[in-house]
Design a protein around this nucleic acid. Structure first.
Lengths: 216, 216
DNA sequence: GTTATGAATTATGAATACAAAATACAAATC
DNA sequence: GATTTGTATTTTGTATTCATAATTCATAAC
């Protein structure tokens, strides 16, 4: 495979790079909720000055991942049960919308790709590989979102799911719930194949509501 | 009226103040879409240094109100028809959700207040006072949102409506559309009074879809 | 021993200074 | 005259410096 020599050289501003790295660290739980993020310390860690770091902090604060308190610095946002109760209905509504839109726009090729991922996911489920299952699960939902052809919607979903993702690691799915989730996915795939937007919307919404119950 | 002497003295960071002011200027159309926002110029205008201004810019960029291009500065985001087509369905979904939630939580006192605003709005409609009508209209929708008891949802709606607000000034409502909008509001109030969440959700969604048609 | 006070330290907020990239403009070439 | 190339200027990105508020810690008072 040859690389595109004429491709534009990409040099990103430090604040972008910092925001991405910190976002990843927070979402993946490397930075614990409530943890104090001292500027000096992070600057030393990343080898940058405070200016771009502070710019990155403003971005993360706007996304809701950190909290800025005037003259007192920055802490990783905590994820309370109330936050989950707030976020999940919204994610449900957005996911329902993405389902409806996806039914209008999805191509056969995309559908085939989702089916493939779905089948692989079922295999991983049967093998009891929770980690792989989650990964594939996520990719399927991402593909539905892409098929909705609405970048703004995708962006909002991404932002919200980033906020609640940390809760996932607290959640230990019961075997019963896991089986139910797989069954739900079968129905989701059916509705998508039939381009039944209304039904898909209901299914996705319910799927997410069940997930919230599991997490709680 | 006496002031609370013991109230905490609030001193906000400059970047907050700047973000608020710039947001207002963009949303209200004082800064035109596509307009270049040169740092030096704005610094002079506000009498601050570039550091807090740049922090404010990062916030507005995250909110989607401005666009940052590395090494090329900042411009006010343009609002294309495609953007509206993306934003309105999302706002519809969120508004539908807020309707459902509002029906679960709204108090009689809040309902009475909304009725009052509604009646005043109808009066302004009959007087042909579009400006006042819009203001009251907005307050009603805001009160429904508040009754949903979901700050995250409120925040997202606010952010989205800020983005599309500029389009409203392009829109000149036809008399027929205006009459229809008022009629829709009557039904919305009915559904809310009856705590009929499903019906309210449908009405609000349709109401917004109609609005999009008007804007376009 | 506990609480309150104040100085020393540290962290954050904002301005300035410096570096690097982009733009504007002039001169040179065809 | 149009296009290209080199230089000056402007603008943005980042680091550093200065100012101010918060925190820590030692001391004093009860």
């Amino acid at each position: 495979m040859s690389i595109d020599v004429a491709a534009p050289i990409q040099r990103r501003p430090l604040h972008n790079e910092l925001a991405d790295r910190l976002r990843h660290m927070i979402v993946e739980g490397e930075l614990a909720p409530g943890e104090k993020l001292a500027e000096k310390e992070l600057c030393g860690q990343f080898g940058v000055s405070r200016t771009p770091l502070r710019e990155a902090m403003k971005v993360l604060a706007t996304e809701g991942l950190v909290q800025l308190t005037p003259n007192r610095g920055c802490t990783v946002s905590k994820l309370t049960l109330a936050d989950l109760d707030e976020a999940f209905p919204i994610m449900g509504a957005l996911e329902a919308l993405s389902g409806e839109l996806a039914c209008q726009h999805i191509t056969e090729a995309e559908l085939a790709r989702i089916r493939e991922l779905h089948d692989r996911m079922v295999v991983r489920y049967k093998a009891g590989a929770l980690r792989d299952y989650f990964k594939l699960n996520e990719r399927i939902h991402q593909m539905i979102l892409d098929a909705a052809r609405n970048p703004t919607l995708a962006q909002m979903q991404l932002s919200l799911s980033g906020r609640v993702r940390r809760a996932r690691y607290m959640a230990n799915m019961s075997p019963a719930r896991w089986a139910a989730a797989v069954a739900e996915h079968e129905k989701i795939l059916e509705a998508l194949s039939a381009r039944d937007g209304k039904r898909l919307a209901v299914l996705l919404k319910q799927h997410l509501a069940n997930k919230l119950q599991t997490v709680k």
